[in-house]
């Protein structure tokens, strides 16, 4: 909609996250902003840290802040597929970097809407001072306050935490699986690795070849314990395979990707390594070899 008039006054914003720790579902960054002059009224709205509130109360507060014309809000929902993919890239991106980028994305989005942001309160991720420096360098016109437990210290961050938490809960509740396998269900529990309901869900949904449904964050250490019974998968990005698709010498596994699925036979490592030697470059560079035995 149109930009409210108060957005042209100096504004403050709070940023908080929901679903950073869970092994499944999206991670959500939420923000809430209002005019600095609205600060006192905001404090009277009784937003508390979303984690201390019951789900119903959070939903109720979310609806009331959505209806409040003196408040603006926005969310960034980071899909579990995106989280896993980024953290498992060839050059891996860690969760702190993803979190920082998401928070900065929200600041950019709100600034681009034309809101005059002058102060932004952020719950810290990693070292607070370093994070504050990073934010201040990116947005020199904004005064940042980065603090631990900002969600319980600043009402504007408490409000942001409600936005984030309600959005994450709804996303999980309404999750549509990519997979079409039978016997899947949505009793995820909290999604935290220690939650017995989450553990049971993971145990029930693990798959020897595919690992888990894409709802799960494959980059979480928790997953490794469930993969122990499943098929081992080697990736070039993990250093298990070199550029040629040949397993690293250190790994004592010599495999050619170009052969995978085409040869099932046991192959001598020397045979594979020497197979391209003395062959025409045309064949070498195309990973083609004459297969007499297969």
């Amino acid at each position: 909609g149109a930009l409210p008039k108060w957005a042209l006054e100096p504004c403050m914003m709070g940023i908080d996250e929901a679903g950073r720790g869970p092994v499944l579902g999206p991670m959500v960054y939420g923000c809430l902003y209002c005019a600095v002059s609205f600060q006192k009224t905001l404090a009277s709205l009784e937003f508390a840290d979303s984690k201390t509130l019951k789900e119903e109360k959070r939903e109720e507060l979310f609806e009331s802040l959505k209806a409040n014309e003196s408040i603006g809000w926005s969310v960034d929902v980071i899909d579990p597929r995106e989280l896993s993919a980024k953290m498992l890239k060839k050059s891996k991106i860690n969760l702190n970097e993803i979190s920082h980028e998401s928070a900065m994305g929200l600041v950019t989005r709100v600034l681009n809407m034309g809101v005059l942001l002058t102060q932004v309160f952020v719950d810290t991720v990693g070292d607070a001072d370093k994070y504050c420096t990073k934010l201040s360098e990116r947005f020199p016109s904004i005064k940042f306050v980065v603090a631990k437990k900002a969600d319980s210290l600043y009402p504007v961050v408490s409000g942001a935490s409600i936005v984030a938490k309600v959005t994450r809960d709804r996303a999980l509740r309404n999750w549509t699986f990519d997979e079409s396998a039978e016997n899947m269900h949505r009793n995820f529990g909290s999604g935290y690795p220690g939650d017995p309901e989450t553990k049971a869900w993971l145990e029930h949904h693990k798959h020897s070849i595919f690992g888990f449904p894409t709802l799960v964050r494959f980059s979480w250490g928790t997953c490794t314990t469930y993969f122990k019974d499943g098929a081992e998968v080697l990736w070039e990005a993990d250093g298990a395979l070199d550029e040629e698709g040949t397993a690293n010498k250190n790994g004592k596994r010599q495999l050619k990707l170009s052969n995978l699925g085409f040869t099932g036979g046991k192959r001598n490592s020397e045979e594979i390594e020497s197979s391209s030697k003395g062959r025409c470059k045309f064949f070498q560079s195309r990973k083609l070899e004459q297969l007499v035995q297969f």
Binding site: S208, I209, V233, L234, A240
Partner: peptide
């Protein structure tokens, strides 16, 4: 053709 090695043979 996947860019990885799945150490398993069999239907899935």
């Amino acid at each position: 053709q996947l860019p990885c090695c799945i150490k398993s043979n069999g239907p899935s």
